[in-house]
Amino acid sequence: MQIIFDNVHYVYSSGTSFEKHALKGINLKINKGEFIGLIGHTGSGKSTLIQHMNGLIKATSGKIYFNGEDIYDKNFDMRTLRSKVGLVFQYPEHQLFETTVYKDVSFGPKNLGLDKLEVDLRTYEALKMVGIGDDLIDASPFELSGGQKRRVAIAGILAMQPEVLILDEPTAGLDPRGRDEILDQIAKLHKEKNITVILVTHSMEDVAKYVDRILVMNNGNLVMDEEKVKIFSRYKELEKMHLAAPQVTYVVNALKEKGIPVSTDVTTVDEAKNEILKVFKDKIQKI
């Protein structure tokens, strides 16, 4: 078990009229190599939850373990945790600050106190992983396009070689192709390096396409934690929390309701296509 949350509560502005119970007794186990989707409407506690994972926010009560170690133990090194659990914030390109792409990406590894060779190695590797070519390495990050900036910023986290990668809406504001490029790269990374990935997103279609397991936050509670297909089959409950299932899930459910024998365990276009074709195969007209 890589990350364990044991009854974690978080209350902020405690004792004032702004007091808010942002996390209410979260229990959670995350295994190495999982690809997890975290969903919930704005203000449900998603951001607060992920910031606990790398120690940026300290729980009001409860325990968090990383690789078996209590992260609130006084001998635990928080900075190591931050390098092992890489957190990519929303609009990460807003934190770029260096004069060149190279310098910006190497900021993280340098902070880890690595030697020059290792910093170089990691920087180049990270840039390669996000598909930024050598021609841009000495460019100013401020001159890149929106999508490129985003990828450089993600490389800045990857260069720390985290074991867990958390991304808070990594595709916000990108066009459809830009969105696919980034998510495909993350999926590849997950597969090749066996990195644990936690994807925070509002797009059910993205969740359906990439993740295995989904966590649903509502009102500071972790209300669902199951396999993707099981979560989306509870789409009526999701709707009550201002969430939804992917469109194709609704299609197969509507067909099923009309008595057509399709499986409703369907969340992506490909799955839906195969499932529908199974039933409708004799209706295919050869053109």
Binding site: D175, R177, D180, P246, Q247, V248, V269, K273
Partner: peptide, 9 residues
Amino acid sequence: LDVPQVTEL
């Protein structure tokens, strides 16, 4: 660009 899931299906 892209189309909504249902259009693509």
